[in-house]
């Protein structure tokens, strides 16, 4: 059996990549995808712990996280559509109305 630590390291690396994406990317859709990456890294850690403790709680938690991710994708993508309609661009540097 693969030790728990290996899975946690992989989850940590994927989470870090997602965070770099949120900071560095300019296209709002790619920022959104980086957030999905971070959610998924959390899922992986959850399932690994669940396997190692022999308890099913983590599976239910992942189920809930997937629901939240679906809701977040629906609302977030409609925000992106509204933004694109008003700004005609997917570049977040051009969204500076609230910035002084």
């Amino acid at each position: 059996m693969v030790p728990l630590e290996y899975y946690l390291v992989v989850a940590g690396i994927i989470f870090t990549i997602g965070m770099i994406g949120v900071i560095v990317a300019r296209n709002i859709i790619i920022i959104f995808m980086a957030i999905e990456l971070m959610l998924n890294a959390a899922n992986l850690a959850m399932i690994a712990f669940s396997r190692n403790l022999g308890s099913m709680g983590g599976h239910v938690m992942v189920f809930m996280i997937m629901t939240v991710a679906a809701a977040e994708a629906a609302v977030g993508l409609s925000i992106i559509i509204a933004l694109f309609r008003n700004r005609d661009s997917a570049n977040i540097d051009e969204v500076n109305l609230m910035k002084w």
Partner: peptide, 8 residues
């Protein structure tokens, strides 16, 4: 991991 890097 490589695919995640390529995403961003």
């Amino acid at each position: 991991i490589v695919a995640a890097l390529l995403v961003i």
